[in-house]
Design a binder for these strands. Structure first.
Lengths: 190, 190
DNA sequence: TAGAATTTTCAGAAATTTCTGAAACTTAAG
DNA sequence: CTTAAGTTTCAGAAATTTCTGAAAATTCTA
C-alpha cells in the first residue's frame, strides 16, 4: 500500500481536522483512506499505509463502525476482515451529520429538559431558568430542523441547498403557499 | 458569586460538551456562565465562581472574544473589565454556527481545491481524484448553504425551521414558484 | 481437538492539551 | 514620576487523550 502524494495529503488533512469533526487523528485518517480508496482494505493494510499500530487500527475500526461510516466485507478464500466506506459521499455526509446531531444536541436537550422541571427558588434562579428555557427552545428547534433535513431525499436536499438567495423568496411565498396549493388540485391521490 | 444548583449543572454540562462544540472545558463553562448570568462579570468573579485560575480566565476570555461570543463593558468608576454574552441566544447560536463553519469547512475546502489542481499520474490517482472532487463538490455546496442560512433574518430562519414536513412540499412547489412569483407583481417598489 | 490465523483488549508509554501561578506588562491615578 | 490596580503571558505541572504492542480471546481449518 503506497499512497500517492495526493492521497497522502488528503489523509493527513483529514487526520488533522478529525478532532474538529468528532474523532481523533488516526480515526480521521482511516476514514479518509477508506473514502478515497475504491478497493476494500484490511486492518494490516491500513496499519501499514498509515504507519500506526495494529491495535490502534482495531480500535479505530470499532469507532468507525459505531459511527456507521464503514462496512465489513469478506474476500472469498481470505479470512481477514475487509472494510470500505459505507455508501456514497452523500451517504457518508448524511451519516456524519446525523451522528453529530446525536452527540452534540441530544445530551444537552436531555439535561436542559431536566433543569426546567424544578421551579426556581428566587429571583436570581428565575432569571437563570428563563435563559435556560430560551436555550432549550432554540436547541430543540434546531434538533427538529436537523431531523427534517435528514429525512429529505437526495433530490430535495440538493434542490434546497442550491436555492441560494432563492430561499428567502420561497419562504415569502410560503404564507400564500397553503392557499395556492389548495387552489391547484393538480394530482388527486398518491 | 454563588451559583444555584441549576446554574451549576448548566455550567458544568457546557464544560463537558465544550470539546464537542469546539472549545475546552473551562471556556465552555465561562461561556455558559456569561450566558445565564444577566449582569456583566469580571475576570475575578469568573475565576472564583468556576474555581479556576486567573490566568486561565484571561486565556479563556481571549478565546471567547476570538469567537465573537462575548463583549467587553466597563462599569463607571471601576477599572476592571466586565463581560457579557454578545447578544441574544439567537445571536450567539448564529455566531457559533458561523465560526464553526469557518473552522470546520474552510481549511478543508482550501486544501481540496489545491489537490484538484494537479492532474493525476495514473489510473489509481485518477480514481482518488474523482473521489476528492466528489467530496469537494459536496462540502462546497454545504458551505454555500450554511452561508445562505446565515444570511436569513431571524423571522425567515424561524419560519424555515418550523416547516417540518412542510419543507418538502414547499420544495415541490418550487419548480412552479418561479413562474408563480412572476405572475404576481404584488408590490412594485420598497 | 489442536493449532494456526486473525482480531480484540488493555496496561502503561507517549503525545497532546489544559491549567496554574508567578512574573512581566499595561494603564490610570495620585 | 511612582505606585497601585488590573491584565496578559508563558514555562512547566497536571490532566487527558491517544497510541503501542504483547497477551488474551476468538474463529476457522484440518
Amino acid at each position: 500500500m503506497k499512497l500517492s502524494s495526493q492521497a497522502q495529503a488528503f489523509v493527513l488533512h483529514f487526520g488533522e481536522m478529525g478532532s474538529r469533526w468528532g474523532f481523533n487523528r488516526t480515526v480521521g485518517q482511516m476514514f479518509a483512506l477508506l473514502t478515497i480508496h475504491n478497493e476494500p482494505l484490511n486492518a494490516d493494510q491500513l496499519a501499514e499505509a498509515l504507519k500506526i499500530s495494529r491495535g490502534n487500527v482495531s480500535m479505530g475500526l470499532k469507532e468507525l463502525q459505531a459511527w456507521r461510516l464503514i462496512e465489513l466485507h469478506h474476500q472469498p478464500g481470505d479470512r481477514k476482515d475487509y472494510f470500505t466506506a459505507a455508501g456514497s459521499i452523500w451517504d457518508l455526509a448524511r451519516t456524519v451529520f446525523e451522528e453529530r446531531r446525536k452527540r452534540e444536541l441530544d445530551p444537552t436537550l436531555t439535561l436542559l429538559r431536566q433543569l426546567l422541571l424544578s421551579d426556581p427558588r428566587d429571583q436570581q434562579e428565575a432569571q437563570a431558568q428563563e435563559k435556560i428555557q430560551e436555550v432549550y427552545s432554540l436547541l430543540e428547534m434546531l434538533d427538529q430542523f436537523a431531523n427534517t433535513l435528514s429525512r429529505l431525499d437526495e433530490k430535495d436536499l440538493l434542490k434546497l441547498m442550491k436555492l441560494g438567495s432563492g430561499l428567502s423568496k420561497l419562504l415569502e411565498l410560503k404564507s400564500r403557499a397553503g392557499i395556492t396549493a389548495k387552489k391547484e388540485p393538480k394530482s388527486r391521490k398518491k
